[in-house]
């Protein structure tokens, strides 16, 4: 196995101090090999979003390591850290808060390419092709976020994350605020991008069916512990842990075997 990709080793995150401290992540290890999508499933309080934040350094880890292509990112200097953050991009959950309402789509995308000055000029080609990638017309660039629906905004957020051609994408519950039909479209888009761009992605969701659709491997998280990890096929067909089985059993409306759609 190569060291290419993102790896989290024995990561522990605690909030608060003293007797009031709560452990959000307790010795969690997750590997996202290059070119793979790893689905991270868990219920609220499982620590799945905390893991995303800890990887990006938004919350401090108490112990453990985050490795990108085999390099520990914790000891990086300011400059290298910035480079790391360009190689790993986050797509946030809420389509209504992920875009600055006062800036055009072009300005938002330009900022990802040019954080210091966010000049649109000189990046128009990149912006157009980034929008094209997520199936939005080029004239979307001149418009403001409120002119788009939730699904379209989420596409823009995806475009923003992908425009720098990151090595790893972290998608945090990106479809949970959307209507089912829109969610389906965003998932189709992700599937296509995964094929075309050979994405390396950590896909976080509470929805097992969604995770199954986009992931090669699955990690099940509960109360800050990894309960189960394996290939999607293994975890969903032959879950080893009782918790995973309970989760799967709770999914409503599981189609009876062999029932066709017509």
């Amino acid at each position: 196995m190569t060291a290419e990709g993102l790896a989290v080793e024995d990561l522990t995150v605690r909030f608060g101090r003293g007797a009031r401290a709560t452990t959000a992540l307790d010795g969690v290890s997750v590997t996202v090999p290059a070119g793979h999508t790893v689905g991270l499933v868990g219920e609220s309080g499982s620590g799945k979003s905390t893991l995303a934040k800890a990887i990006l350094g938004i919350v401090p880890a108490e112990s453990g390591r985050v490795l990108l292509d085999g390099t520990d990112v914790s000891g990086l200097g300011r400059h290298e850290r910035r480079a790391f953050l360009r190689r790993v991009q986050l797509i946030p959950q809420d389509p209504y808060s992920s875009l600055n309402p006062r800036r055009t789509i072009a300005q938002t995308l330009a900022e990802a390419l040019d954080p210091a000055w966010a000049r649109v000029r000189g990046h128009t080609d990149a912006i157009t092709s980034a929008l094209e990638e997520v199936a939005l017309p080029a004239d979307a660039a001149q418009r403001y976020p409120h002119e788009f629906s939730g699904g379209q905004r989420q596409r823009i957020a995806i475009a923003r994350a992908l425009i720098t051609r990151p090595e790893v994408v972290i998608a945090d519950e990106i479809t949970s605020a959307l209507d089912v039909s829109v969610q389906a479209e965003v998932l189709r888009l992700l599937a296509r991008l995964r094929r075309e761009l050979d994405l390396t992605m950590l896909f976080i969701s509470h929805n097992l069916a969604v995770v199954e659709q986009v992931s090669d491997e699955v990690v099940v998280l509960r109360h800050g512990h990894v309960v189960e990890a394996g290939t999607a096929g293994d975890v969903f067909t032959a879950p080893a842990s009782g918790y995973t089985r309970a989760l799967l059993a709770a999914v409503p409306g599981r189609r009876e075997e062999g029932a066709p759609l017509t």
Binding site: V180, S181, Q183, A184, L187, N207, L208, A209, V210, E212, Q213, A232, G233, F236, T237, A238, P239, R245, A246, L248, A249, V251, G253, R254, R255, E257, L261
Partner: peptide, 19 residues
């Protein structure tokens, strides 16, 4: 209705052991 049905993400795999 069909579109809605098709949009619902479904678990295709079913665990071999009943829960």
């Amino acid at each position: 209705t069909r579109m809605l049905l098709e949009s619902v993400p479904r678990l295709s795999a079913t665990p071999g052991v009943g829960a």
